[in-house]
Nucleic acid binder design. Sequence first.
DNA 1: TCCAAGTATATAGTATACTTCATACTTGTG
DNA 2: CACAAGTATGAAGTATACTATATACTTGGA
Lengths: 122, 122
Amino acid sequence: MKLISQLAREANIPIGTIRFYEKSGLISGMTKKDVTSNNYVYYDDEVTEKLRFIKMAKAVGFTLAEIKEVIDAWYQKELTKASKMEVLNLKLEQIDTKIRELKAMKKQIELCKNNIENGLSR
Amino acid sequence: MKLISQLAREANIPIGTIRFYEKSGLISGMTKKDVTSNNYVYYDDEVTEKLRFIKMAKAVGFTLAEIKEVIDAWYQKELTKASKMEVLNLKLEQIDTKIRELKAMKKQIELCKNNIENGLSR
DNA sequence: TCCAAGTATATAGTATACTTCATACTTGTG
DNA sequence: CACAAGTATGAAGTATACTATATACTTGGA
């Protein structure tokens, strides 16, 4: 159980961004009910995991809305098994598409490199 | 040589977006100097290629600024061979990073699927 | 006890990538 | 030659994802 500044350090994400993610429903901490003097929010390791996932997913072009879908399928017990599987399977397909696109880009860039090496205009 | 509406059809990208990309310096058409009655812009197949590349690169999370760098390394003759290679090599590294991240996400999601199948909360 | 540093909340501002709108001119077809 | 459809331009508006600012309260160490 950690406060927001420690979480930010661990995940290497600005505090402001974490608050934004919490407001957006991607993550959530909890207030300790036995503490009445403040309303500090505590986060567990699950949140750190989620933040790492968010970071990766964002890096490969998923939107926060898309990421939220996956996280909900992951952690929300309210959803049916079937609907969770549907979301996750769709996401796996999208991931494979992205991998294919990245490989295609790689080929194109390598071709381009060869052309430059050989002094061809293109 | 085609006008913008045909280009939009071929690349499956809205005309407005194409105009935005042109203003942003990612692509450029040409006006026919022998035509004086209008200032219609014509595009060749190179532009179609660029648009396809832009689409893929965007899908995997590259920004327009990053994409512009690659396109410039690709088509701008003004840059030195060395600086072009630098840009392209960096981009290849970033692509490999993204592929690794996608594979990591894939593993995580498949693990999550197994947990759901086996009825484990997590 | 003082006070720097941490926390919470709300609001406003910024950057990116479009998208829409208004206006005006051009072209091709009936 | 009328007129719908296409084109160009500029400016304003929108969505997403932050980022910064202001205010106020809390905590922990000298």
